[in-house]
Design a protein around this nucleic acid. Structure first.
Lengths: 186, 186, 186, 186
DNA sequence: CATGAATGAGCGTTCATTCAT
DNA sequence: AATGAATGAACGCTCATTCAT
């Protein structure tokens, strides 16, 4: 369905840029070169568009998680590798991430998506840490709690990269910081 | 001025809870038990209320920064101490922080406040790190870049604590994680 | 577009009767049996309605000027003929003229329209006088200044006819007064 | 009463400049350096201020009429003399005249004032014409109707002088135009 | 006399949504 | 499927007026 996807893509970039509230159906219709009524042929409501975008992200992130976990070769450097892949995924889905991050505090569906994303993130980190611990790359520690800390850092980093993209990229510092901490254990 | 403060306080909790857009002047007036017109006797616009809240926070945070930097006793444990004080300050000003964090991506005045807060945070962290390096508590490293990393962690942590307050408090883990990384240098 | 014209016509009569400020969008919508929102589907703002009315008048008056100047047969009595046609035009567009006359002192767009109308009036009168002078109907004199005087009289007359329509029609006296003055020259 | 007069004078210049509607009590109080409440110590309503201004003008114009009629020396040139005195009176009371002229179409009290002013003007002109006819300065004609014509010209002239004050003063042309017409009779 | 905070009805305008075509 | 005119509730805001002090 070409029209539905055009609506979705344009909505995604508009909401990412201006926010959900500031994106009006009139504007969206005009940019998509359709009538306002047509939006409602494809979506039940404006919020339904948002939910579709969020669900798409959730699905993609789930796929990404599964795929990357299956590909993990345990080796020194695994942590840096994984963090970089996470950042690459976010970069590819920038708009969707901006949408979740800017609206989870304001809209219930976004909050649910955010919960889902964070859960996957933490779970993924925990799996990673357990593998690393089993193979002795890092010392034994609580995978759950350390995963939480890593997720915290990742979340902060996402916000800063997404909303201050022109700032210098210090991802290497973040990765090194985490590597040092992990090697010591907590 | 009692009324002005009542408006301000009620607005603060409403905006923190529902967001700026969802907080209407009618609702605000009704909760404050005043008429809508009265709001405009004390503030030029709805946005002016937001700006006042944000400026108050900025001022308080500036005061806090100055005060805490002057009180710093360099000693092992200084980093944990400082991180805890930061978290305490945020806890005391929860509502204002929720407002900035939920709206900086959507509203220009909030973005400016956010910039100001982040700048102060980073500067403060850099000062702290330099002191710690001078006295040999942590090894020499780039204060600026490491401060950036600490700020990143703090930002992520704030979001999680403010929006998922019912989750288990893992601040000790965060502090320990940072301590370990800093002791190694990056 | 039927609705747009209905809005326009009803607005014209309401503004002519009560003035621009006293004509509210709620009233207008109610009289036009549409919702207030519909007004804004057809006009950008309340002022846009006014501007449309004023521009319509300006266009009509420009057409009228061109047409009447092309039809002028120079003959004794030409002045009376022309003044009568002017009055007839005003009578046909009473509402629009009332709108300009009642609001040019208060609203910028009306002032601009008024300037345009007066310019055309004076220019038209000057052309007429020049023709009359060339054919010896009236003695030589400054066409510009005399046109200004005629326009002055016309303006005063319009106000009185438009706002005191129940007063006796003394247009014949005005025409005769002007004719006498013109025949003598100034 | 000093305060009352200050309110009155400031209101007069504000209403003349911006119109009655655009002049708010808040603005007025601020310019007069009093509180809004004080306005209502001296006037029953905003409209009451307008009415006071209009009545003042009416009174002054009545005085002026009486005085000038008693001073009339019948002589050739009497018409020019009188027209000039009228214009001088208007110039002295510019603001009040601008108020009446800009609002008589919109506000009932202004319409009443306008009626009163026009009545006096016409009556005055008629008296003048009768005197001029009796002494043979101008030929016999209907004083009432010719007075109406003169008033028409005066009204048009007032509007143009008051609202386009920067335009060239062509009052001499107007006076000469009228003189020529009157000398011929109608 | 004067204040100024408070009022509340009403304003112009927006916008997600509906529905006849 | 698509249109686009119409809706109507709700919004932020204004302002003449009141009243306790």
């Amino acid at each position: 369905m070409k029209t539905k996807d055009r609506i979705l893509n344009i909505a995604k970039s508009m909401i990412a840029e201006q926010g959900f509230h500031a994106t009006t159906t009139a504007q969206l219709a005009s940019k998509a070169q359709i009538s306002e009524g047509t939006i409602y042929r494809h979506f039940q409501s404006k919020e339904d568009i948002l939910i579709t975008i969020l669900n798409d992200l959730d699905e993609k992130y789930a796929d990404f998680s599964v795929q990357i976990q299956s590909q993990l070769h345990v080796e020194p450097g695994i942590i840096a590798t994984v963090l970089k892949k996470q950042l690459a995924f976010v970069a590819k889905n920038q708009e969707s991430f901006k949408i979740v991050l800017s609206s989870f505090a304001l809209l219930q569906p976004s909050m649910e998506s955010m919960n889902s994303v964070l859960d996957r993130m933490q779970e993924f980190m925990a799996t990673l840490l357990e593998k690393a611990m089993q193979t002795g790359i890092i010392p034994k520690q609580s995978a759950q709690r350390t995963a939480m800390v890593l997720m915290t850092m990742l979340l902060g980093f996402l916000e800063l990269r997404l909303y201050w993209p022109e700032d210098e990229d210090y991802s290497a510092d973040v990765v090194e910081f985490c590597r040092q901490a992990l090697l010591q254990g907590t």
